[in-house]
Each structure stands twice: as structure tokens, then as C-alpha cells.
Design a protein around this nucleic acid. Structure first.
Lengths: 181, 181
DNA sequence: TATCACATGTAAAGGGTTACATGATTGC
DNA sequence: GCAATCATGTAACCCTTTACATGTGATA
């Protein structure tokens, strides 16, 4: 993943981490410093990356990595590899399977949070500098956008269904929604 | 996850694995025998699960697990816990970021595979016995269905865009698609 | 004054998969 | 005969996160 991100421009470990958090890769990959720094060191040892230290004023020194010819070859080899199926880890979906055992207010709050975080993701994607993207990056960014929109759309259209099936809230027991098929 | 699946009925480790592969939980969780069996043993030791051995004819014995009262409590505690953000690991999205470096035929094949596997997932979900689902399970199943449909929809609407940007195939260099904005 | 952003790195601990070990039966 | 399904379990290995270690400068 680090190798891939460096194909879009030289960067330090710290900048790669920011890319994982904020860039278009945000919605399908992630890594912590504990795996980024060792990976960068290892690939430099293997000759896939070159490293130069950039001194900065009023900031700690920066180690900027860039792809070598071997690095580009390794990237091309990686993207030629067969791809495995997408894997999703969703606490939300897991908890929703037991919505019947949860108070209505919790189910509603869970859905609200999901919608809000998808809206947040959409905002971040739309703010990003899309005109500079390659066709591939643009495709991936719009893909992330489309999935988030579909996510919000599904939740808004179906929430009434599951909220109706949930447990009455312990305290507030008025205003029972009609059951919906 | 095992605790959760057992809430829908007693099962053996082998059956839980099948549930991960075929049930509605298929699209957001997974586990191998190497983690299922130890988890089952551990939870039995902790008193969350009860285990009975069912002898079978012409088949190895089965160890069927069921939730104890403590198990139900642990499940309720688990679903009351704050949920973390969904995490997606997508080789496909990663490779697509570098579509410009790939031959058109590979990009097309990658997209075909994605569409086909989503169609396959839809078929499996629709075949399943939906009428017996709880409101929660039904919601999650329809959620998986909606996401897969959105996935296919995006790919079909946008594939021409990225396939146009990819590299000419090494051998076949005729029939160049028009660039699309 | 405290927290955040910048900046790199290591080690312990945790979680998971892969591979192995074993064995019967059914279908191609 | 060979592969797949049924069925359970262990251990080595791999990868990752979490937490720690260190230090400056800007902002609230």
C-alpha cells in the first residue's frame, strides 16, 4: 500500500499516514505508524524505495521516500497479481442483526451515526482536488462516493422498518410507530 | 461473532463456519476454523456456552453449542458496546487506482469479475429463507443486497470511463473506444 | 497550561490465517 | 481413483495495532 501511494508522489511516513486517513484510499485501506515505518525501512533495504532526509526549520527532519526503478517494477507486479474478494468488517451490521433486542432509541442513534459518518466521508471526498486525479483515482473516488450515497439512501428508506421492530425504550413508552411490512 | 450466530440457533463449529460463508453475515464478517474452534472452547470454559455431543451415523460426532443465560447476557453487553467504523479491505479499489498502468483487457476483466461476484452474492441472498428472518436479519440481508446492487450499478455506468483511460492491449490494438468525460 | 500537529521509531501483545493431523463417506 | 463434504482441533507464523519513547512549536 505504501508502495502504491508513493507512485502518486514522494512522501514521508507521516504523510503516507495522512493519505490513509484523508485521501481517496481512505475508504478501503488503513495502516498505523507501527506498520508504515517498518514497511518503508524494509522496502528501502530491498531497493524498492530511495530515501532522502529533508531538514526542516522549526520541525523535525523529514525522511522522504520515492520509488526506484525496482519499486515501479514491484508495483506493476503487485497490480498484475490476482485480486482477492473485498472484505468488509462492519460492527454496525453485526449489531443490527440483533436490533430486536435493542431499545428503539439505540437503533435510531446507531443509524444516525452511520448516516452522519457517510455524509462526512462524502464531504471530504468532494472537497478533495478531483481535477488533478488520474482516471484510476477519479474512478475510485467516485466509487467511494457512490457507495456512501447508496448507504445513506438505504438507511433512510429502511430505518422505519427496523426501528418499528426494536424494543420499546425503558422510560419513554408513548408514540409507538405503526408496524411496516 | 460466534456468540451472535448461536443466538439464532444451536450449532456446531462446522455449521458456524458455513454460516459465515453462506448466511447473511457473509458480507461483513468471516472467520476460519483456526479461530472458531478455540473461541468456542474458550467461551464454554467461561460459561457462556453449553456444549453437547451429538453422535451421528456415518458422520463424525458433532459438538453442538448453545447459549447459556450468561451467554445471552454477554451478547446483550456486546451489542450495547459502541460500534467502530466499518472497515473495507478492497484489493480491487487499490488496483483500480493504477488502472492507467494496466492493459484495457485486464481492467475489463477485473470489473467483470467484480460484477459477477456481486451478482452471485445477490443470488445467494435471494435464495435464502427470508420469511423466517427477524426484523434485524432481514434488514441486514436487504442492506447487503442494496450495497451489491449499487456496486454493480456504479461499475456498469462508469466502466467505459476507466476502460478508455487504460493502456492499449499489447497485441490487439484496434477498436479504440472514444474518450468519455 | 494543555493539547494538537509535526515527525520517527521500537517492542510487546494480540488476533488471525495457513497448514497440518486425522478419518469416514459420497459422488464423479 | 480423486475430490469434495462432513467434522474437530493444534501450532507455527504473520501481520497489525497499541503503547511507549522523544522532542519542538503553535494554538486555545
Amino acid at each position: 500500500m505504501c508502495l502504491g501511494l508513493l507512485a502518486f508522489g514522494d512522501a514521508s511516513g507521516y504523510e503516507i499516514k495522512k493519505e490513509f486517513e484523508q485521501g481517496p484510499s481512505r475508504h478501503f485501506m488503513d495502516a498505523s505508524f507501527g506498520s508504515i515505518y517498518p514497511a518503508l525501512t524494509k522496502m528501502t533495504d530491498e531497493g524498492l524505495l530511495a530515501c532522502r532526509t529533508e531538514p526542516q526549520e522549526k520541525r523535525p527532519d523529514k525522511k522522504v521516500y520515492s520509488l526506484t526503478a525496482d519499486g515501479w517494477d514491484a508495483l506493476d507486479a503487485a497490480i498484475a497479481q490476482p485480486v482477492s474478494q473485498d472484505k468488509i468488517k462492519s460492527d454496525f451490521s453485526f449489531v443490527m442483526m440483533f436490533a430486536d433486542r435493542l431499545p428503539r432509541s439505540r437503533v435510531a442513534a446507531l443509524i444516525d451515526t452511520q448516516i452522519e459518518s457517510s455524509r462526512e466521508g462524502i464531504r471530504e471526498f468532494e472537497e478533495a482536488d478531483a481535477p488533478l486525479d488520474s482516471a484510476g483515482v477519479s474512478f475510485v473516488r467516485r466509487y467511494g462516493l457512490a457507495m456512501r450515497k447508496a448507504h445513506i439512501d438505504f438507511l433512510e428508506r429502511n430505518r422505519h422498518f427496523i426501528e418499528a421492530g426494536a424494543q420499546d425504550d425503558p422510560v419513554d413508552d408513548k408514540s409507538i410507530p405503526e408496524p411496516v411490512s
